[in-house]
Structure formats: C-alpha cells, structure tokens
Write a protein that binds this DNA or RNA. Structure first.
Length: 641
RNA sequence: GCCUCGGUGGCUUAGUGGUAUAGCACUGCAUUGGUAAUGCAGAGGUCGCGGGUUCAACUCCCGCUCGAGGCUCCA
C-alpha cells in the first residue's frame, strides 16, 4: 500500500498509509485528541474524519469551538432534526438542511404546517437521539445508485440529477436515518451537547417563489450547554433593544395603518434627526459641498432617459398631471443632474460636490417592511460629485476618510468594507466599468483598509464601495455607499468644457454616509439601546420641581435651557420626586434637574444624571456651559456634576 | 407577493357562544414631597374592517386590512 505524507499546523510531518482517515490520524496522536476532534481541514477544505485521505497534504484537526467545527456540528444537528421529524411524520419529504450563519435549518414538504407543539416534540425527540450518541457513517454511491435510493423524493432526485455524472455521491447515516449529503459530519450525535429549535417559517424550494413552499424549521446547537444559554440571553438582549419597541417607548416615531411603510417622525425622533442633520450639513459645508433641494415629482421622460424606467419601474410610484405622466423620485441623482445642466460648466469647477437631503419613495413589497429599517419613504443624505476620471481616486479617498470620521463621531468604532463589481443587469461598456472599478480599488489600497470583493453585486450603473458598521451587539449594518457612475451623466446630457475647449462627459460619484436618516436613527437606537449620548438625546435635560411653590422657577429654568439651544422638558405633575425621576429614567434622559425651595433660593439646580450620580446644587449657567461643551464635543460619557 | 402567527380603551394585557379583566397613562380631589412608583375617585372599548353561521358572535367560518417572523446562506 502506498504512503501519503501529512503535514500538521506546527509544520511537523508524518507518514500514513493511503486511505487512512482523520479519526485514525487523531488517534495516532492521542486518545484525548480523538475525543475532542470534530472535523478536519485538508489543504483548507473542510472534511469529516471518516473520509479516506488519498493524497498528501496539510491537515488541521478542528475541535469543538473552531468556527468551521460549529458549522459541521450544526449541519449534523439538522440531520438529527430530520430524523426526529420523520419519526412523527414518516411521509414528510426532506428537501435540504444546511448550516447557516446562526444555526441551521431543514426544509420539509409536509401536508400541514408544523405547530409550536410539534417543535417541542421534535426537540424532545432530538435530545433522545443525541443521548444515544449514534455514530455517523459515510458511504459513496454512483449517480445511478443514488437516483434509485432516493427515487421517492423529487427534491433529492433534482439535486442528484444536477451533479456531474462522474461525481462521487455520498450518503451519511446515523442510527436508522440516512440522508443524501456531501458532509462533513461530527463523529457521533453525542457531540451535540445543547440545541434549540427556534422557529418555523415558509420557504420556497430553492428560494424561488415560483416553486412550492416548504416548511422550514430553524434551530441552533452548541458543543456546550453554557453557550446555548449565552446565545439565548443575547437574543433577549437584542429584543430589548429592538428599535420598533424602543421607538414606541421613547416616542420617537410611529407607523400607522393609513400609511404602511411611511413612518411618522415624532418630536423626540426629530430631536435626534435634527442633531444628525446639523452635524452632517456642517461637516459637508466644511468640505466644500453645496446643498440643493429638488422636486419630489418629475416627468416620466426623465426616468426613461436615466434608465430607471427600464431597471427600476416596479419600485416606483407614478401619477398623472395634466395628461402627462410623472414619477415620484426613487433616487435623487437625475434631479441633481438637471441642476448641474442649468449652466455651462468648466473643467475649472470640478470636482463639483452637490449634496441633497433628499426624500425618496420606493414601492417595497409589503412583506419586507420593518420599523424604520425597511420603509417606502426615506431621506437620504445624498451627494453627487461631478469630476474627471483622473479625480475619481482622490475624491473616493477623501470620502473614505469622511466616512471613517463620521462613523467614529456617532459611536461606531468598528466597520467592514466591501467592493462590489459589475452585475448581470448592467448599463455601460466593459471599458467604462474597468476604469471605475480600478479607481475604487486604488483608493481602497491607499486608504489601507481591509476590504472584501463582492463579484456582481454593483449597481446597474457602476461599481461601488459599501461600508457596514458593527453595533454594540456585534451585528453588522450596511450604511454608507460610494458608487462611481460613468453612464448617467451621458444619458442625461451632462458635460463640461475642458482645457481643450471641447465638451466632455463628467464622471458622477453617488455617495451617502448614513444611507437613510430614518434607518440610521433605528440603527443608533438599537446600538445605544435608547440611551443616546447627550448630543443625540431627544430630550437632553428635564426639569423636575419638588413642590408647587417651585413651578414658576422651574418654568424659568426650562426657558433658560431652551434659549441656549438645549432640548429641555419640564415635569410639573403633582407627583413625588421619586416618581418623576423614575419616569425620566425610563425615558433615558441624560440629565434630571431638580428644583425645590433650596435651589430656588440660591438660583441653582440639583443634577442627577442617567447613571444615578447626584450632584450638590449647581448654578444653572454652569450646567449650561458644561452640557454645551459636552454636546459640542459629541462626548459619549455623561458628566458627573 | 407567498408561508406561519397575531390585532381586546393611548400603551401592556386577562378572558369567554350570552356586549369584557387588570396595570400603566389620562382627568378630578386630597397630599407639597428631596432622587426609580403618595392615596382615593372618575372617565375612557362598535374586542382591526366587511360578510356568513346562530335565538345570540369579541369568541366559530370566509374575505379584506394592518403588524411580526421567514421566504439570502444549498445535497
């Protein structure tokens, strides 16, 4: 028998006979390792420990908590789920059951949807199966054999038929259950120490709405019980921060049945909105942007010329005015180009940076709406930069720095960056796409940021860079985007006169930093769990009077704060001071200023901050001075007076 | 759009084939207080909308509407 050479991560090498398995290798090192190992990587490819190794290579044995090992564990759990479901519903047809980012799922074709009671039964059964610690075994079949074996299951047959004729098809068994599967799997079901079935949902076969809808069960599993506990706690924490819930509790916004998907921003939401808006406007003006306002409704012809009619009309709202067709703008760019075209432009004006806080309307399908995250009307902090192809790189580099600055100011320290390239449904020549993609890449390299490439994920008019912030629970949110567009200016007849006294088409860079103000407010709400830093807080300070004798003084104090531009409120109710503090605390107001007889006499306030820190009486002017400094510096920590 | 689940005063919610429960919020009265809930009283609901079954529907059935989660991760 021939020999193969296996290299370990520490670079040591060892000879084994051809066809040896990962489990045998693990055992050859130690029994302890053999017990802990879940799967392995051979030259970077994930494999289980049962597959014969038929070539030399680098091996990495994966233990419980390696990310890759978790995937294997969860995929194996999906098999256990399938086995449990079949024990109650023998006629259920299995579709697919992969591991996903947070757990796993399995799709079933059953006559009736599963009930919550079903899930409980399945979970109980799964725990029994795990206790049996059944070994997973692997078998190779030819395509013909596989088709015969799964002839009663049209989903598996469809999958098998799509595989190349010569491909080795594998099946995996644990106990009496066998499934078509590429693997890999954990050595035995006992490796799954904790699991939970989370929810059921309808899901189309292969994600295509023309196909039959199957019943999907989502679940999660871990190699340790404690990890499941932590995971469930984190779900609870995320629920508490849900911006729809907090939006109601803090009275930030509402969505009403008269306007599905069109949120109302309430006074508290506006406080937050206005701070963000003022911040972004100030910063852009410093960077030589000019602001414009363009109409919401524009003639259909414009959208035909811009290409939106061809690529986007199913998401647009239309209306007829004086026998002419108009569209409500789903994007700000064509309007911005119309502004650009109002004058003859010289190369000396470029780069020309035009910003608009533009309200756009997009007809999203009813099932995808969610709070202020996914809506039908929203305000983009949009800007379009008209420049020459040579200027793209430096403009994009400036933008990358701007995005970094803004993210850190609002409290997002961590973010990821992605470059998206030409999609299938695209406009413009190959050459144009290459030039613009290259410019984005160069800027990213100069910025020294790590980035990932998403092939085919660009906009229909050009490639783009996307930024995803990571919030306080570690969840990613796509916010900023920088898109190069070498098509639309030409379509809409934009040009500038070059040094050569000839007409040239400018490049247009579309960019947004918050993306949508509505959505951004939602994300910030979840990030801060509603306890915003003072500069963003909807109400920055509330005055609480101790008794009715102090009413006049309290009103005067509130007016003093309002005069200084501080968002102040007043609670004059005939309630105890404890009650007023409690209510202000639940509203997560940064500063509570108590005024009683003592304070009135000395023209002071007693300050309690949201963290419970209580001060000695402080002159109102001193409070104003300090809080204004805190707001101006966008400090994330509250002051203890 | 499709699948599952849901809609009970402003909010959170109990409940049943015989027009409904509580807390918070609101209003009034008393209390004039010192940093996370003062007490008493009152008012407030066509039980999402429309239709059907029934002597009787908030409850059962059908349609609609609004909301939540999922429909992207590939044997």
């Amino acid at each position: 028998m021939s020999q193969i050479t296996i290299e370990f991560p520490d670079k040591s090498k060892k000879q084994f006979s051809n066809g040896t398995t990962g489990m045998e290798i693990a055992k050859s090192i130690s029994e302890g390792l053999a017990k802990a190992v879940v799967a392995m990587q051979l030259d970077g490819k994930l494999m289980d420990l049962l597959t014969p190794i038929e070539k030399s290579g680098k091996i990495k044995l994966l233990k419980d908590n390696d990310t890759e090992a978790l995937e294997v564990l969860r995929h194996s759990t999906s098999h256990v789920l399938a086995e449990a479901v079949l024990s109650f519903y023998p006629k259920a047809k299995l579709a697919i059951g992969p591991s996903i980012k947070d757990g796993f799922y399995y799709d079933f074709d059953v006559s009736k949807p599963f009930t919550p009671e079903d899930l409980k039964k399945f979970e109980k059964k799964m725990l029994e199966l795990i206790k049996k610690d059944e070994k997973f075994s692997r078998k190779e079949l030819t395509k013909k054999e596989a088709l015969k074996m799964f002839k009663d299951n049209k989903y598996k047959v469809e999958l098998i038929k799509e595989l190349p004729d010569k491909e080795k098809i594998t099946i995996y068994s644990d106990g009496k259950f066998t499934d078509l599967c590429a693997g890999p799997h954990v050595p035995s079901t006992g490796r799954i120490k904790a699991l939970k079935l989370l929810k059921t949902a309808g899901a189309y076969w292969r994600g295509n709405e023309k196909n039959k809808m199957l019943q999907r069960i989502y679940g999660i599993s871990f190699p340790e019980k404690k990890q499941l506990q932590n995971y469930l706690t984190q779900i609870e924490e995320a629920k508490k921060r849900d911006h729809v819930k907090l939006g109601k509790e803090l009275d930030l916004f509402s969505v009403q049945k008269e306007a599905p998907g069109f949120p109302f921003i309430h006074p508290n939401g506006f406080g937050l909105w206005e701070s963000l808006q003022r911040f972004i406007v100030d910063e852009l003006l410093k960077r030589d942007y000019k602001f414009i306002r363009t109409p919401l409704i524009l003639n259909k012809e414009l959208w035909v010329k811009s290409g939106h009619w061809d690529h986007y009309k199913e998401n647009m709202y239309f209306t007829k005015l004086d026998e002419e067709e108009f569209a409500v703008k789903p994007m700000n760019c064509p309007g911005c180009v119309l502004y650009y075209n109002t004058k003859r432009r010289s190369y000396r004006e470029l780069p020309l940076r035009i910003a608009e806080l533009g309200l756009v309307h997009r007809h999203e399908r009813s099932g995808v709406l969610h709070g202020t995250f996914r809506v039908r009307k929203f305000t983009q902090d949009d800007a379009h930069i008209f420049c020459t192809p040579e200027q793209i790189e430096s403009e994009v580099l400036d933008l990358i720095e701007l995005v970094d600055f803004i993210f850190k100011a609002v409290g997002f320290e961590k973010y990821t960056v992605e470059l998206s390239t030409k999609p299938e449904k695209a406009m413009g020549s190959e050459k144009i796409w290459n030039i613009s993609t290259k410019a984005l890449e160069n800027a990213l390299k100069k910025s020294k940021l790590d980035y990932k490439i998403n092939e085919g994920d660009g906009a229909f008019y050009g490639p783009k860079i996307d930024f995803h912030v990571i919030d306080s629970l570690g969840r990613p949110w796509q916010l900023s985007t920088i898109q190069v567009d070498m098509s639309m200016p030409e379509k809409l007849g934009a040009y500038y006169i070059g040094e050569d006294d000839k007409k040239h088409v400018p490049v247009m860079i579309h960019r947004a930093i918050f993306g949508s103000l509505e959505r951004f407010i939602g994300i910030l709400t979840e990030h801060y769990a509603g306890a915003f830093p003072t500069w963003l807080a909807p109400i920055q300070a509330i005055i609480l009077n101790v008794n009715s004798r102090n009413e006049k003084f309290a009103k005067k104090a509130k007016q003093q704060l309002l005069n200084e531009g501080i968002r102040a409120d007043l609670d004059l109710r005939s309630e105890s001071i404890g009650k007023k503090v409690r209510d202000a605390q639940l509203q997560k107001i940064p500063y509570m200023l108590t005024v009683g007889d003592k304070e009135e006499k000395s023209n002071t306030v007693t300050i309690r901050n949201r963290n419970g820190k209580l001060s000695k009486p402080v002159k109102i002017e001193n409070f104003v001075k300090t809080i204004k400094k805190e707001i101006f510096s966008k400090n994330k920590n509250l002051t203890s007076f």
